[in-house]
Design a protein around this nucleic acid. Sequence first.
DNA 1: AAGCATTGTGCAATCGTTTGCGCAAAAATA
DNA 2: TATTTTTGCGCAAACGATTGCACAATGCTT
Lengths: 341, 341
Amino acid sequence: MSKKATINDLAKELNVTASTISRALNDNPRISDETKRLVKEAAKRAGYRLNGVASALRSGRTYTIGVIVPTADRSFFSSIVRGIEDITNKTGYNLMICQSNDSNKSEIEDINALLRAQVDGIVLSIAKETSDYKHFEDLRERGVPLVLFDRVTHKAGVSTVTVDDYRGAYKATEHLIEQGCRRIATFVGEHQHINIYKERFRGYKDALADYKVPFYSEYVHTSSLGIDGGREGATTMWALPQPPDAIFCQSDFSALGAMQFLKEKGLKIPHDVALVGFANEPFTAYIEPALTTVDQHPVDMGQTVAKLFLEQIESEDTSTLTKNITLNADLVIRQSSLFGR
Amino acid sequence: MSKKATINDLAKELNVTASTISRALNDNPRISDETKRLVKEAAKRAGYRLNGVASALRSGRTYTIGVIVPTADRSFFSSIVRGIEDITNKTGYNLMICQSNDSNKSEIEDINALLRAQVDGIVLSIAKETSDYKHFEDLRERGVPLVLFDRVTHKAGVSTVTVDDYRGAYKATEHLIEQGCRRIATFVGEHQHINIYKERFRGYKDALADYKVPFYSEYVHTSSLGIDGGREGATTMWALPQPPDAIFCQSDFSALGAMQFLKEKGLKIPHDVALVGFANEPFTAYIEPALTTVDQHPVDMGQTVAKLFLEQIESEDTSTLTKNITLNADLVIRQSSLFGR
DNA sequence: AAGCATTGTGCAATCGTTTGCGCAAAAATA
DNA sequence: TATTTTTGCGCAAACGATTGCACAATGCTT
């Protein structure tokens, strides 16, 4: 109750100095067990609580890690946050969260806010708008630990955690081929400067090539990959003389949009057209037909990000050893892709 | 680049004292415009950045607000976080986020972690497990601003933001009655000590009473309100001699579970049975039939929470004036509830 | 011209911890 | 017993900003 007790109060009470209190509480080996016991008892009695701010000022460590996500309420990112928190919570770190709203300006402002707060490091997923990576290089030069995840760049020499978008897309396309599809369209994301979209497209093309399935540029539709983008894409494709027999949608929402359009048009999925999405958004399991999609294991990803971050920060050597981790993306096969059935 | 400049460095450079630098940067009226200009220029040149930790130690304000949610990756809560961040970001506050995982122990530990970090206050949604509110009272006594949202208690004398669960449930039930349903079941949440579940149940009962529709206790099923809970509930109901003709499910997931069961059983929704959910989870719009549900406007709620919090914290009077805000819950009518069609 | 108010800045303490160094007492070694 | 090592703790200076008070210089009033 009352006001808060400080180590100075404890010091006075026990007739020792604040240094002794501090050391005792931190289990410094130079303090006798007896003293530690007394100090800890007194601390408990007084309801003492470390002032993290004072501690941080002196020690230079806040035990806080800054997290910047494009938007906090997208399933993928909130799962990432969940995964990060799962780990940091246990290790005594706190999380400071910002949203960039996919704006480059916000991203930079968020970084500044986090630096002002003296976070021990930053983990972030790049805003769609961002194509210049100078601010990341600055962080590296300043010695601020940085880990990028999902939407990353390898140009700034920082550590990254990504899911294997290439393999995920490859598997998805391969699966469609195995179902007997031969005219496989794809919906790709604008912002092709973002690694994930580039990789997914590459996986799609390589799978086609490996299986000698023809690639037609008319079967590529670019959009923001939202529901509307999916509808547009499908509309465009079904205006072609020869529409595709499958679409590998590089996002679940665009797959949903396509599905809506196709249903309205009276086409049967997967009988007439096979569909695959990407991300395994929660809704994909519940729609009809259930959507085959690629799971990115976002919670695991968050946990990996946190572990990598802690590893970097705890390691003595401030060496710029950057580490790039790629996690598996798994194809989740559901109804929508079982072509012909 | 290089190391970070402090106000002392700037002071030396300009041959003034650190106090002048500090005042100039904070636009203190006692500093001449000329000096301010010089200081700000020098600051920019040196790449000066406020050390928030030092500032916080001295001033006692971290401009950080602690947020505790049961889980970060539930759509509802992540939207709340989004809403909070929308506001705080603009006002120079930072967000520190913890998950209680619905555990009372974690909730208390999270509070302690946030207090150690000297947050300016805490906003939280109570863990399911929590039924003793002493830790909230402690916060109030310590003078730590506290705002509860969604899952709240009025027993601790703190400010709250809730959605009108009672009216939401009432409207949902009323809607079913208006569709001609007369045997309306409901799926309620265990943990009836949590206000929201209590209120929803009350709204349901009052609507029935007001419209003189009979209430049958066999038509009440209690569960954790997940998909399985919904399946169980439906299974139980359809084992009755006279199954219901509608279910007001107090969560979207339980509605989904019921829907799955009913479809498997060959019943048509909403022709044979009408269904209403609660929360307007993203998937509800995409399943078939689309689920009628109650929207809680979580982003707005988060924004309201943030505004209320800032209002409390900025107001001089440390008066324990607590404020309870209730937001509207709106019925979103979709296919699933249009009984008979 | 004397007195008072205003303006602009400096001084120094303070916030609560941490930590390098010093030093006495106790323990270990010779 | 004399010397070295270890043990246990105190001293005091940080960390980087904020802020009440003091005070000189200037402006204003009469």
